[in-house]
């Protein structure tokens, strides 16, 4: 699993539950280091070990932790950059949903060794979608649910998200967009970030 994903997980646990808890989780997961590096590829077993250790030590189901992680990676201060990169996907939330199938290719444009699971969006009815994604580990789709929830909020849309099915090698999420213009959403300027940070 790419270091960026592992590091996001580490930052979420660190910032939400404190450095001490992170060290306990890292210890229980038997990580051979104190912190993940963002540009290194790690064995997926380490990722799974961290999730299992966090679930045990925090006494919370792994699904809930993963969903919160998804929300964290786009709504926290450190996730601002990712939020902006995701906002390039579309003008509105529905437009953004349609851009999800492009997301793995988009991620590879930025980082050639960053492999996101394949995603297939199907429009079932007016404003009702399903998103099927190949999950690299059990419950990875919950991260996507959390992320989509935060992005809907960012676009100012009201959406209902649910895990439909967890097949052996993939998750299916149902997305019901109730109101695309529910709230004002957050501002997005195409070029602001690109120039102010160097």
């Amino acid at each position: 699993m790419h270091g960026l994903v592992n590091l996001a997980m580490e930052l979420y646990l660190r910032e939400t539950f404190g450095a001490q808890m992170w060290h306990r989780i890292a210890g229980q997961a038997a990580l051979p280091f104190q912190s993940f590096e963002p540009l290194i590829i790690y064995d997926i077993a380490l990722t799974v070990a961290v999730i299992d250790a966090a679930s045990a030590l925090l006494d919370r189901p792994a699904d809930a932790i993963l969903e919160d992680l998804g929300t964290y990676i786009v709504s926290s201060a450190s996730g601002e950059r990712l939020r902006r990169l995701l906002r390039f996907g579309g003008v509105g939330f529905r437009d953004f949903l349609h851009s999800l199938e492009e997301l793995p290719a988009r991620a590879r444009l930025a980082l050639p060794d960053f492999h996101l699971p394949d995603m297939v969006l199907t429009e079932m009815a007016e404003a009702e979608f399903t998103l099927a994604l190949g999950a690299p580990f059990g419950g990875a789709g919950y991260v996507m649910i959390g992320l989509l929830r935060a992005m809907a909020d960012d676009y100012g849309a009201l959406a209902l998200l649910e895990m439909r099915a967890q097949a052996g090698d993939g998750d299916v999420i149902s997305i019901h967009v109730l109101d695309e213009g529910y709230a004002a959403g957050r501002r997005f300027d195409l070029a602001v970030g690109a120039l102010s940070r160097c």
Partner: peptide
């Protein structure tokens, strides 16, 4: 827009 996305992604990766 993809070009802008890439510029921004490149900045993030470089950082």
């Amino acid at each position: 827009v993809e070009l802008l996305y890439l510029v921004e992604a490149k900045h993030a990766v470089l950082e």
